[in-house]
Design a binder for these strands. Sequence first.
DNA 1: ATCGCCTCCTGCGCGC
DNA 2: TGCGCGCAGGAGGCGA
Length: 271
Amino acid sequence: MPELPEVETTKRGVEPHITMNTIRDIDVWNSHLRLPVNHDLTSRLRNQTIFNIHRRGKYLWMTLSAGYLLIHLGMSGSLRICHTPTPRKKHDHIILHFDRNIELRYHDPRRFGLFLWQEESPLHHSLLQTLGVEPLTAEFNARYLLAQAITRRIAVKSYIMDHHVVVGVGNIYASEALFLANIHPQRFANTLELSEYARLVKYIKLLLRRAIQVGGTTLRDFVAGDSKPGYFKQSLLVYGREHLACVKCASTLQSVKINQRSSVFCPNCQI
DNA sequence: ATCGCCTCCTGCGCGC
DNA sequence: TGCGCGCAGGAGGCGA
């Protein structure tokens, strides 16, 4: 579910409720995530104050009194703020109980996410060490993409979704950005020119910024941290529109599988 | 070094 | 109404 805008929206949604608030109790209903939740999570977190929350790629991490909490939402995860008492929903796997009757709930039907206590800064964790540049910084630019692509004979769509290159570009935004930039998703990454990467960078930044502004794309059950649904989905131009008309030229949009991921594009506009 | 395939898991929408 | 099937936004690990 979450791409970078959803994760950023989640961060902003939960931030005012949990920063400078203290965890008093922890319920772990299911510890079987992508990596198992620390067996001693409850004793580690009890009576710790959360000082701040950060995002790196699609990872969220918090600084606590005596350590760190590293969270990834996987494909179906979400965090939400509840006020005691709120009935537990199916797949609410971890509940942090704070002062002021506030709860932070980690909900994840597919359990591809992470919820890890860390002694050291998560930035040193092997999972975060190999991440590429943040898409909304100056480091992410056409020259960088061109240089990194020299040895990459893979579909450009797979290339921009590779988080060792740039973080936070998932299937939806990759499809949308390639459409706006008029670039065919199956072109090999090492065949694009600088001007093409410049267009791609421009539209990736534009799409991500816009999605963050409106609070993340709504898909299925995504609800932002403050329980307000995002409403970006209606502006998707190709994702989920296979067989419909291209908004630019009215040709019929096609779908191909690229690395097991459905990829919708306009065969006329994208070359 | 690089690439593509597989996997973890549940829920949903579709066609029959 | 019920059932089986394919598909889903992530990302690490594996063999080739």
